[in-house]
Design a protein around this nucleic acid. Structure first.
Length: 758
DNA sequence: GAGCGATTAATTTTT
DNA sequence: TTAATCGCTC
């Protein structure tokens, strides 16, 4: 009867069977978290809770779909379909679609992705006659995003003294005005950005008590996965939604918190016990995924972080193979090494392509691996990166659809009004804009009415008529037919078809694929009892919220996967390559000078390691191409945190062999040692002294031996004298005078590599 | 108003 | 390296 409970360990079972009241599950990597969540939902339903009353928030839509499927299997019926389950963003988008008019938005509101948002910001910066070199759209976007994720609206932003000080210090005094204008513009456009989906959800619940009551009543049981990666807005919303029943179940692992750049704060999970009375706490500490070797390495690495909830992750799995640590000369060699290793493993241990994953810190690193895999005829798939929906041709096409659904959206109207070219150029558009601002009307309203615009133009009238005719079609025909007609009548498809270049062909195929996806969307049959919203508006809202992991529905295809570590969250593979373990890259150059940032990088490394079930490779290159020229990097500090007894070392490339090494090797070496004149000139111009070349016999000395007054050598800063020493055993910080070039620097002794000279 | 070539700026991570 | 922007010409 209750056989779905079988196969759970004691802790998992406790987590599943605790039905009422708040519960926090601290789930270590690979500890069967998904299993607990799905079994818990099944258990709730088995005990009389209606699926309609359960809200589950996951990290990807794919995870949500999987969860539904597993609950269905556990229960043997189709009730799970009625679960409210998805990512924060997609669930709230769905709710807001129903409630939008209460907030003054059209129910068909457009969702802006990051690019759309930045382009709106750029327009505002230009209108305000500000320098967009200083007021960079990406900077402004991040700042606004951070504000929204902390539930700070423009009015509050402009009066908060700390924020104002920050903006004054960075010399961006009108930042608040830009935020205000941006929020206004989005509203006028009938558009929400990603962060608005949270912010507006919050204001719906705060300002509309009847909505609050409705959803509090509806969501009697709330489950949240990856709770360590929630931000303040998400926290506040959950707190409100759950206040009536307090049946909140959060699952997370502070050691895997890797989204602080998005406003996520581990505080949410650390404080959960203070937020509610009688919180049940369960720790899942048995790892079912990895070998002992891999787990030991992971534990050792994460042990270097100071801030964490104490836990002991253990496994009864076998010891497994040593991991391979490989150094190569260049990033291209790294690519070759990985491809070779994959081929070798396939021959020797009969692994399939899909058993391998390649994890890197930044998307830009994929190139060398793609090349080498292609050369070896190993099929692979990139997960994430520039996504399908960010491509120009797709955005253009979607812009038409968005305008048909919501013509308030000035951003998208401007995108298509002259694409394909129909003789409505920059000057006409500017005239329309000025007119719109004068009359306080939207861009569309002005072009719709030639009396208003004062611009009698056959081209503009033609454009308006065309869009209107599509809108009429929408009333009688399905989303696919309308989309198809758009491609035909605008000449979009024809234009791409005529382009016979390789890229042109790819673009044409992409558009075909888009049409296919719309067709699939319209044709998915309604399941019993479930009325799906098949409108074009609903389609458009969905696709903007697809996560990277969602976009490959053929994740199970037999191919090697390439992705960032962030995208790999929650996934597991028998064989994992973690590549590019170099200072400035991993840890990223942006994160090295702040303890909290550095610890997040380490957690990221921890996440990467714990994706591996059986075999793990960690690789790094001596030098790699960046912006077209070869740059040298030191091995990552994280490499030293891997205990040597679990490691097989491999070196490839000529530089290891003492003398011979072939012509190429010598060239590489020379190239490494001699920075080009241009680079040297750039450095001098930037006021940075040229990098110090470490002595040939450079060996890092034990930090414990260092005392004030000692002469030391640093790999980058050169020779210096220790002036001060502070901090305890694990956190000793030395003040070191490096002389004219670098001056006095604070160096953390447990990270820096210093050689004692005298 | 459109199209071409030349300059230059950019790389964390994502909903 | 590549993508985006600028400025010039037709």
């Amino acid at each position: 009867m209750q056989n779905y409970l079988e196969g759970l360990n004691d802790q998992q079972r406790i987590a599943v069977e605790h039905v009422d009241g708040p519960i926090m599950i601290i789930a270590g990597a690979g500890s069967g978290k998904t299993k607990v969540l799905t079994t818990r939902i099944a258990h709730l339903m088995k005990n009389g809770v209606d699926a309609f009353n359960i809200l589950a928030l996951t990290f990807t839509n794919k995870a949500a779909a999987e969860m539904k499927e597993r609950v269905e299997k556990a229960l043997g019926n189709t009730e799970a379909r009625n679960l409210y389950i998805g990512t924060f963003h997609s669930v709230f988008a769905r709710i807001l679609r129903g409630e939008a008019t209460k907030l003054g938005y059209p129910h068909n509101f457009t969702i802006y992705d990051t690019d759309d948002a930045k382009s709106v910001i750029k327009g505002i910066v230009n209108e305000m006659n500000l320098d967009d070199k200083h007021y960079k759209p990406s900077y402004i976007y991040n700042r606004i995003s951070a504000a929204k994720n902390s539930l700070i609206e423009p009015a509050m932003y402009k009066t908060d003294s700390i924020i104002q000080q920050e903006d004054a210090r960075s010399n961006r005094p009108v930042m608040g005005d830009i935020y205000e204008a941006y929020a206004k513009r989005c509203f006028k456009n009938g558009a929400m950005d990603f962060d608005d989906l949270l912010l507006k959800m919050y204001s719906l619940l705060t300002h509309h008590p009847e909505s609050l009551a409705k959803f509090q009543g509806r969501f009697q049981y709330i489950l949240i996965d990856e709770y360590q990666d929630t931000n303040l807005a998400q926290y506040a919303i959950i707190k409100m939604l759950g206040a009536r029943h307090e049946n909140i179940c959060v699952v997370g692992d502070d050691a895997q918190s890797i989204y602080s750049f998005r406003g996520a704060t581990v505080q949410n999970i650390l404080q959960f016990q203070d937020d509610y009375e009688d919180v049940k706490v369960v720790k899942l500490e048995q790892n079912y995924r990895s070998t002992q070797t891999i787990l030991n390495i992971a534990n050792n690495v994460i042990g270097n972080n100071k801030n964490q909830i104490p836990k002991e992750l253990w496994t009864s799995n076998k010891e497994g193979e040593k991991i391979v640590l490989a150094r190569t000369m260049t990033d291209n060699d790294e690519g070759r090494f990985v491809a070779d290793a994959i081929k070798e493993q396939q021959m020797r241990n009969h692994y399939a392509n899909k058993d391998f994953a390649l994890l890197y810190r930044t998307n830009a690193q994929s190139r060398s691996f793609e090349e080498s895999l292609r050369r070896m005829n190993i099929p692979y798939k990139l997960v994430g990166g520039t996504s399908f929906y960010q491509r120009k041709e797709i955005k253009d096409y979607l812009a038409y659809l968005r305008v048909i659904v919501n013509s308030q959206d000035e951003e998208n109207v401007k995108r298509i009004i002259n694409y394909p070219a129909r003789g409505i150029g920059k000057t006409s558009q500017e005239k329309i804009l000025i007119r719109a601002n004068e009359l306080n009307k939207t861009f569309w309203e002005v072009i719709e009415d030639s009396e208003l615009s004062g611009l009698r133009s056959a081209q503009i009238d033609g454009f308006v008529t065309m869009i209107k005719s599509f809108r009429t079609m929408l009333e009688k025909q399905n989303a696919y037919d309308v989309a198809f007609a758009v491609g035909k009548h605008t000449g979009l498809v024809q234009e791409l078809y005529n382009d016979k270049s390789v890229e042109g062909l790819a673009r044409y195929e992409n558009v075909q694929e888009l049409l296919n996806s719309i067709k699939e969307f319209t044709e998915t049959p309604d399941e019993e009892g479930e009325i799906l919203d098949k409108s074009l508006g609903s389609y458009l809202q969905q696709i903007t919220l697809l996560t990277d992991a969602d976009q490959n529905n053929d994740m199970d295809a037999d191919v090697v996967k390439l992705m960032t570590i962030h995208s790999a969250k929650g996934l597991e593979y028998p064989c994992v390559f973690v590549v590019g373990l170099e200072e400035n890259l991993f840890p990223s150059a942006m994160s090295m000078y702040d303890r909290a940032d550095l610890e997040e990088e380490r957690r990221l490394f921890y996440v990467a390691i714990t994706r591996a079930k059986e075999r793990l490779w960690v690789t790094y290159a001596n030098s790699r191409y960046r912006f077209g020229s070869l740059v040298q990097n030191d091995p990552s500090r994280f490499i030293e945190e891997i205990p040597a007894n679990y490691v097989d070392k491999t070196f490839t490339g000529a530089s290891n062999r003492p003398t011979a090494g072939g012509f190429q090797g010598m060239m590489d070496q020379k190239f490494d040692k001699m920075p080009s004149l241009k680079k040297l000139a750039d450095k001098l111009a930037a006021g940075t002294p040229p990098a110090h070349t470490p002595s040939p016999d450079f060996v890092a000395s034990d930090a414990a031996d260092m005392t004030v007054g000692m002469k030391i050598e640093h790999q980058k800063f050169g020779f210096g004298t220790i002036l001060t020493l502070e901090g305890g055993a694990n956190n000793r910080i030395a003040g070191i005078d490096f002389g004219a070039g670098h001056g006095v620097k604070k160096i953390m002794l447990n990270f820096a590599k210093l050689k004692i000279v005298s």
